[in-house]
Simulated scan of single mutants.
Amino acid sequence: MALRVDGDSPQNFSALFDLRGTADTGELRLTSPIGSTLGLARWSPAEAVLDNGSRTYRFDTAGELIRAATGADIPLDALFSWLAGQDKSVPGWRADLSQVDAGRINAWRDSPLPRAELRVIFDTP
Rank of each mutant, 00 (worst) to 15 (best):
T56V: 15
P112M: 09
L79G: 07
T61E: 08
N106W: 13
N106I: 07
W108D: 14
G63R: 09
E47R: 12
Y57S: 11
N52A: 03
E27C: 12
P33G: 07
A107W: 01
S32Y: 07
D110K: 09
R20V: 02
I66T: 07
A116F: 03
R115W: 02
A62N: 03
I74W: 05
G103A: 02
Q99W: 04
D24M: 10
A23F: 09
D73F: 08
A116L: 00
L65E: 07
V120N: 02
P114Y: 07
D87Q: 08
F80H: 15
D18N: 10
E47L: 09
E64P: 02
R104F: 13
V90P: 02
T37F: 05
Q11M: 13
P33Y: 03
D87R: 07
R104P: 01
L19Y: 03
V90S: 05
F59V: 00
P114D: 07
A84C: 00
P75N: 04
A68L: 02
E27G: 06
A84T: 02
K88C: 01
S32Q: 04
G63I: 12
D18S: 11
L16R: 14
S111E: 15
S89P: 08
A72F: 11
R94A: 06
G21C: 00
W43P: 06
S89L: 12
D101I: 01
Y57W: 07
T37I: 09
A102I: 00
P75H: 01
V120K: 08
D73S: 15
G103D: 12
R94F: 03
L65D: 06
V120R: 06
L65S: 06
G35K: 10
L50Y: 14
S81V: 05
I74S: 08
A23W: 07
D51E: 12
L19E: 04
R119M: 10
E117A: 11
S32P: 05
I121E: 12
D51R: 05
L50E: 02
G26T: 06
L30F: 13
G26Y: 03
R55F: 04
L118E: 10
V5G: 12
R42Q: 15
L19C: 07
E117S: 11
W108Y: 14
L40G: 01
D101E: 14
L113S: 13
R58W: 02
D96K: 01
L97Y: 04
A102K: 12
T25L: 11
N106E: 15
G35V: 04
L113P: 09
Q11A: 14
V100L: 11
A41M: 14
V100C: 10
L97S: 01
L38G: 08
L97C: 03
R109F: 03
V120Q: 05
I105D: 01
A46T: 12
Y57N: 03
L19I: 08
F59Q: 11
W82A: 00
